[in-house]
Design a protein around this nucleic acid. Structure first.
Lengths: 219, 219
DNA sequence: AAACGAGGTGACAGGCAGGTGACAGCTGTC
DNA sequence: GACAGCTGTCACCTGCCTGTCACCTCGTTT
């Protein structure tokens, strides 16, 4: 679950990002409108938390462009004013939800989660393949009944591959969706993490490599 | 068990809060309607004791919003008038119970407890995991037959983790549900309390840490 | 068969989430 | 008012994760 926070107030942005990361979301931050557009062009975000008033490109404009592109990202618009007028305007521009500042922190979190859930089918209670079972809610993984202990990154990668449902996932996509913006695209991190994950999952292999195309679960 | 008291009479609110705390409930107080809404947005309360006539947002309005949000909180409505008409109106708005002022103090307590019990599957007479047994009613904890003496906070944390049923509970959630509004989100309190609890529970460990996700019982 | 490039592995180090022990303030009790 | 137990805070410690690097393997290309 990947989220972009477009908000020029540095402190606020950081706080929100930290809160969402705690809920296992992958969060990028853009401190102005141009930066936000760049990131939106580069990555498919599930949810965009969008401050309406930003230096550079205005939030409304970003909203409009996303709508024009038929982006699948859902938009939560933040705004200083709290008039009904604003609300109507915001939603008219294509925002999916709207929150007036000052807002309650946990309400923001709750709304982002609600938006994150919206389109995708309800979060599958269990994921799995063969004798491998993953319970995202409990963060538990078992193989042939044996409990496995995965690190957060390993778990995230496995979860992502399982939801990709047999499609090969390129390392680049994993970097975009499981790592955050700080990830260096020229590193060997993904290779290493997948390697460690494979070692923990044991035999027979679950994750197979499709040359030039990425990793996939099963065959 | 977390309760919000929304009541503009300061003295009454304090008295009720103290009574409920003595019964081991975690109690927040809101002295007006706006404050109540803020708190309701921030925390999932099990029961809301709601004064009908409050400055700011009216109790009826709060009731309506909770119903609209499909909140799981149960509502005990307090009102000055005692006509049957009022009772009907209150329940019509979505309140779960209704108590006319002046009321008998212990009756209020009893009704809150009744509501607190209501939805959750029948109050598990006993909670436990492995050789650990917890009796919420008697506040008794035994490990392998040996009686343990826990402090109130320790007991509350253990009880909450047990009812979470294997799901990892983040420290932040514990802060919200086991501590009251005075809790500072940036402290190390939860860590410390869990540490003390672990020490008392002894070996083998019962509470396991899931990095980035919180604490969980067993697994 | 030599060169090449994609992917795999093991070792290492820094950072950070989480754990601990000591201490002090508060509250309720005798 | 003295005392004891409970809790929150602080400073410090620790061990695990994770990114990086150097090097290896193996299939493909020329």
């Amino acid at each position: 679950m990947k989220v972009l926070i477009a908000e020029d107030d540095d402190r606020l942005a950081r706080a929100v990002a930290a809160g969402l990361r705690r809920r296992h979301m992958v969060v990028d931050v853009a401190l102005n409108g141009d930066d936000a557009l760049d990131r939106l062009a580069a990555t498919a975000y599930d949810v965009v938390v969008l401050d309406r008033d930003m230096p550079g490109v205005h939030g409304d404009e970003i909203c409009r462009r996303l709508a024009a592109d038929r982006s699948a990202s859902r938009i939560l618009m933040l705004t200083a004013a709290r008039s009904v007028q604003d609300r109507v305007e915001g939603l008219g521009l294509g925002a999916d939800d709207y929150l007036p500042k000052p807002f309650d922190f946990s309400e923001l979190i709750a709304r982002v989660r609600a938006l994150a859930r919206r389109p995708g089918l309800p979060p599958p209670g269990r994921l799995g393949f063969g004798d491998l079972a993953v319970d995202p809610e409990r963060r538990a993984v078992t193989r042939a009944g044996r409990k496995l202990t995965l690190t957060p990154k390993e778990f995230a990668v496995l979860e992502y591959l399982l939801t990709a449902d047999g499609r090969p996932v390129p390392a680049e996509e994993l970097l975009l969706r499981v790592w955050d913006e700080a990830a260096d695209p020229f590193t060997t991190t993904v290779k290493t993490t997948v390697g460690r994950l494979r070692a923990k999952l044991g035999d027979p292999p679950v994750i197979e490599t499709v040359r030039e195309s990425g990793y996939r679960i099963g065959g």
